[in-house]
């Protein structure tokens, strides 16, 4: 059994929780940049930003997860992901590293996990840095949910 199924994730930190999205879904990692807000849009939508001439809709992941807003002036980053032909930037506290985990390591979400994490999480891994939740991007972007 030499070929172990693995999953490679870009790990992120949101509200102190370690999470990750599949590296294949990540188009770009951006440092903080100016976001033009969109009136009347859901509070989850932070606004629009310009990525090399393309309009990217920025999603406030903290709000999406019902977490308290980040302290003013706190560093923020975003990962750009493509979903159904459109680009979305997921605003997170920080983008950390790329890790490869054995797919078999996926576990059920422990009951102690915040409900929002359970709602948008695809799975949970134990890592040396703690619990890592993989995010389900399409569920994050489905505001009807």
């Amino acid at each position: 059994m030499s070929a172990v199924a693995t999953i490679t994730l870009v790990t992120l930190s949101v509200g102190g929780q370690l999470c990750g999205i599949p590296v294949g879904d990540v188009r770009d990692v951006l440092s903080a940049r100016s976001i033009n807000r969109i009136p009347l849009a859901s509070p989850v939508i932070a606004g629009n930003l310009n990525l090399r001439g393309r309009i990217v809709t920025a999603i406030d992941v903290r709000r999406r997860l019902d977490l308290p807003p980040a302290a003013p002036g706190a560093a923020a980053m975003s990962v750009v992901t493509e979903h159904e032909g459109n680009l979305y930037a997921l605003l997170v506290d920080s983008v950390r590293e790329v890790v490869t985990l054995a797919a078999s390591g996926v576990e059920a979400a422990p009951p102690t996990l915040h409900a929002a994490w359970a709602r948008y999480g695809a799975g949970v891994f134990q890592t040396p840095d703690g619990l890592l939740v993989t995010l389900d991007v399409s569920r994050l972007l489905d505001l009807a949910h």
Partner: peptide, 24 residues
Amino acid sequence: LAPILRGLSVFGGNTILGDGSVIM
């Protein structure tokens, strides 16, 4: 508009201005 914004009927689209900012 991105599909996630389609419900906003006050906007017909968005664009990028010469200064790089995105406006509705």
